[in-house]
Amino acid sequence: LCGKLDEVIYEEVVSYENSAEELPQGMDAQDVVRKVKYREIQRIRLNPAEAKYGCQIPKGAWHTVEVFEPSVIFEAKDGAYQK
């Protein structure tokens, strides 16, 4: 493998807001708006030159990759591929 990149892991933060003051006249004030944000909880630098070749992503975690130089990425998962 080659290249330098960060694997960034996020947690989902859900909040609920009562939007009564924003509702048009006649709508039920019980309407609630669900808001979802994502907060970074971990950043892992992968760099073969520093012998950091991979990492374990927790099952169900939101994640992304930030690439700093041309990279080759190999992803493997437990078990058989299922559609």
Rank of each mutant, 00 (worst) to 15 (best):
S19V: 14
Q42R: 11
I73M: 05
D78W: 00
R43F: 09
K35A: 13
V65I: 11
E22L: 14
I9V: 15
E50Q: 11
V67F: 04
C55K: 01
V72G: 09
L5D: 02
D28E: 07
P58C: 03
I73G: 04
G79H: 05
K77T: 06
G26P: 02
L1Q: 02
V65H: 00
K77E: 08
Y38G: 08
Y81M: 10
A80V: 11
V67H: 01
V32T: 14
Y53K: 01
I57N: 01
A49E: 10
E66L: 12
V67P: 01
G54S: 06
A51L: 06
E22Y: 14
D31N: 13
G60C: 00
E11M: 12
A80K: 08
Y38T: 12
Q25V: 14
E66R: 09
K52I: 12
K52W: 00
K37G: 09
E66H: 08
N18A: 09
Y53N: 07
N18K: 09
I57Y: 04
S71G: 01
V33A: 12
S15W: 01
G60K: 00
K4H: 07
D31S: 12
I57T: 10
G26C: 03
N47W: 14
P48N: 05
I44E: 06
Y81K: 10
V67S: 05
Q30M: 10
K83V: 13
P58W: 00
L46V: 04
K4W: 04
A20M: 04
S71N: 00
E12K: 15
K37T: 13
L5Y: 09
V32Y: 04
S15V: 10
Q30E: 11
V13F: 04
G3D: 03
D78A: 12
K4G: 08
E69H: 01
L5T: 04
E40Y: 01
